[in-house]
Design a protein around this nucleic acid. Sequence first.
DNA 1: CTGGTGACCGCTT
DNA 2: AAAGCGGCCACCA
Length: 116
Amino acid sequence: MKESAFERIYDIVKQIPAGKVATYGQVASLAGNKKWSRVVGYALHVNPDPENIPCYRVVNRFGEVSKAFAFGGENRQIELLKQEGVEFADGRVDMKKYQWNRVNMEMLEQIVKSEK
DNA sequence: CTGGTGACCGCTT
DNA sequence: AAAGCGGCCACCA
């Protein structure tokens, strides 16, 4: 059972519900290591199943979509998210409201802090 | 075969 | 407090 890092990353991205967005670091952290943020980007770059892998729901920690994404236009991604009810402000998403598992992440952080 | 890079983030000094 | 650098995975030349 040696699932490649990509498999894990894809699994996480697939779990992102509609109307929510996740950050690369978040996905990486959930996948196993926070340093995989880069790997996440590459993983979505190959994006073998764009239909099952909503890469457009993944944004950087600034809440902005990557330029290189452009699988049909940067605005395309923004529009798709808008369709799901995600509010965009100056091309940025309100992470405080739309970041997936944002609260859970904070809780996890608290736990890690406590363990330390 | 080796080196470098990429849709990034976090840690260290 | 701010700035800089490293790091993991997979693919390309």
